[in-house]
Amino acid sequence: MSEHEREETETQEQRNLGFWLYLMSDAVIFALLFATYAIMIRGTDGGPTGKQLFDLNNAALETVLLLVSSTTFGFASLSARTGNRGGAIGWLAVTFLLGVGFVFLEVREFAGMIAVGAGPDRSGFLSAFFTLVGTHGVHVTMGLLWILIMSAQIVLKGLTAPVVSRLYRLGLFWHFLDIAWVGIFSIVYLPGLL
């Protein structure tokens, strides 16, 4: 390996560690939002509870969309690593659509709850719900924007080393969000509907 290649590898390793540490700090944020949610489950102020508001089918559909999107992102990563531009962009597009579907379902769910007077300002429980699930949704939206930007970069610059390495970090982000979702349906939706 040449001196330049060695430095490039070191730079990418440092970026990957740095991004991983950011994800760890994000994990702490989510963990504390989960803790706050658990603490405030009974804070319904005589208003709507999870049992009354949550829809199992919707949560199941969101789960499927996100899980499949994690897999299709994996396919995009494989294409990128083998230099397959079309494959990478194609699978990124599929991932994007699945992600958009997820965000659409979530926004519809939120709008529905607000329409029946169960918005985040109704009770502590609902504040915690909207903030926890909403923070996840905002992260997913940022991820979708990032997918668009990466697609543009692949089109404009090709699968260069920096581009592929950025795609790797986007992958870390995207899979991390799916892990957070596992937490959300396991702590919010399923116990709420029990």
Binding site: T36, I39, M40, R42, G43, T44, D45, G47, P120, D121, R122, S123, G124, F125, L126, S127, A128, F130, T131
Partner: peptide, 23 residues
């Protein structure tokens, strides 16, 4: 969360409506 309480009328730490200020 305090900002959300103040700007968006949420109830994380309010006296009423199921808030928990000790958190």
């Amino acid at each position: 969360l305090l900002a959300l309480d103040r700007v968006a009328g949420m109830h994380f730490f309010t006296n009423a409506h199921g808030g928990n200020m000790m958190n």
